[in-house]
Design a protein around this nucleic acid. Structure first.
Lengths: 202, 202
DNA sequence: CACAATCCTGCACTGTGTGCAATGTTTGCT
DNA sequence: AGCAAACATTGCACACAGTGCAGGATTGTG
């Protein structure tokens, strides 16, 4: 559902970003723990109650709203027939070009994750919807892959993608279009490490 | 530090298990959300305040205290020289034999995770110490593997291990000693899926 | 303009989690 | 056994997270 462009919807999105931005600014300045919902509300110019109309909890405001993979992309993925991994990362590449990322935002998130490592698992948890979507896609395309395997693979790919986005944000020169292939290369390195073992083991 | 067998330490462990057990019983009965710390305290026969002397939050009480990999195991892992994956799972196998698991406890956790999928990421987050330990081991043994890659691989292995433990708990017949190899097989399947792609891609 | 839908906000309330200080138990030591 | 230090349990007060409800303000529609 690509935001109907009514005034109301635009304002809603704007406020959502405003809140996230306020959250990030405060958390970078004072540390995540020290930020209260009241502070965020004040900084974003809304009432404390309204904060929870936009995000279910403090942590969700950090990550912001991450858009789902559009139906056009999922559709062409389902109908494709090449190698699975290749197709997956092509879909992710298209997805990333759609949902445009803000380097500064990612950088602030990155700073926070380095400063408060206990947030890292929480952060990955917030990517659960993407993981679930990927797992479903994998399962639909290759029935031979079991449910648990699809989830594990999807989870791994999501992590690799997050890593790639983080290094993109840190780099001045890396173009946005390289993110997916970065992630793919990492996944393939892991695959190689696992399979190396099998060779030596024979 | 393997629990000095003083009275104090034994009681502490006993109470910790008591609390976890109370938590699980209540959560299975009423649903995780509906359980309050006060209910847990009453059920476990302690004061509400004491609950937080044992677990930092409600969620931690679900999983209980999971022991770290002992220094004897990590030491012999570091000094080994065979294929990485094989050695990792051998270490995990030894670890599992040490820390003995309770089928009923795992089953209750499993029930909860099925009933409240939003707990799943939280649950994996609680395995973070194991993941971090594995990542460190991987990095120490094979310097060629980058930091991010080690973490990703460790994360994957932890998930696979959790999956294996869950299917062990569900099965009546599967012996505890098969858990590690189950996990290993899943990891190798994933590795094969990734590498399959590379072959076809050439 | 009028009416409906949606949004913002204040208020009251439940529950989580922490700091502190008092009181009780265990432990190691002599 | 007896004593002092270490540690455990608890109650109390408190700050903050998050929810339900009901009002008033804004915005979209005809």
């Amino acid at each position: 559902m690509p935001a109907r462009s009514t005034l109301r919807d635009r304002r809603r999105q704007q406020t959502a970003r405003e809140i996230q931005s306020a959250m990030l600014r405060l958390a970078v300045r004072d540390g995540y723990e020290a930020v209260t919902t009241e502070m965020i509300a004040t900084e974003a110019g809304i009432s404390p109650r309204t904060f929870f109309n936009y995000y279910p909890n403090k942590e969700a405001a950090l990550v912001g709203k991450s858009p789902e993979i559009g139906p056009d992309i999922t559709e062409s993925f389902r109908q494709g027939t090449g190698p699975l991994i290749k197709a997956l990362f092509e879909a992710l590449d298209r997805h990333l070009r759609d949902s445009y990322l803000n380097r500064d935002t990612v950088r602030m998130i990155d700073t926070l994750l380095e400063r408060s490592p206990e947030l890292v698992p929480q952060f990955y948890a917030s990517l659960q919807t993407l993981t679930a979507q990927l797992a479903e896609l994998i399962g639909q395309r290759q029935r031979a892959i079991g449910h648990h395997d699809a989830e594990l693979l999807a989870d791994m790919i999501t992590h690799a993608l997050a890593n790639a986005i983080r290094s993109w944000a840190q780099s001045e020169t890396m173009p946005e279009t390289d993110i997916a292939s970065h992630a793919r290369i990492q996944v393939e390195r892991i695959g190689a490490i696992i399979s190396d073992h099998q060779n030596e083991n024979a």
